[in-house]
């Protein structure tokens, strides 16, 4: 029986199968952003482990950024903190951070 496009790609990434049917899928590229990553980095810190493949991880800040005056620090404190946290985490764990164009590092370091 032939395979679907989905099956061809999925099957090429299955590392292992677990009893009960779940599968371990290998991830080629992991994109991260400021809203859903801080707690994950903290988890690594708590377990005292590193980012396994920093070269396959790519970070950007997008959800919180204002669309005016991006060269200035973000006015709202919590948004700014979350973006700053991403910059810190990327530095600490060796993940490349792409700004949306604004010189994010220059603004906060």
């Amino acid at each position: 029986m032939g395979k679907t496009l989905f099956e061809k790609v999925w099957d090429a990434h299955v590392v292992d199968r677990v009893d009960g049917g779940m599968e371990v899928l290998y991830i080629d590229k992991h994109l991260i952003h400021e809203v859903t990553s801080p707690q994950a980095f903290q988890g690594l810190r708590d377990r005292q482990i590193a980012v396994a493949r920093p070269q396959k991880t790519l970070a950007t800040a997008d959800h919180n950024v204002p669309t005016k005056d991006q060269h200035l620090p973000i006015k709202e404190a919590l948004s700014r903190l979350q973006v700053e946290k991403l910059v810190e985490n990327c530095d600490e764990f060796g993940v490349t951070l792409y700004g949306l164009g604004a010189p994010i590092r220059a603004s906060y370091t």
Binding site: V35, P38, Q39, Q42, N64, L78, L81, Q82, K85
Partner: peptide, 12 residues
């Protein structure tokens, strides 16, 4: 359950 404006914390 939790509106987007409250997603700005960096802990759980």
């Amino acid at each position: 359950i939790i509106p987007a404006r409250f997603l700005k914390a960096t802990t759980k």
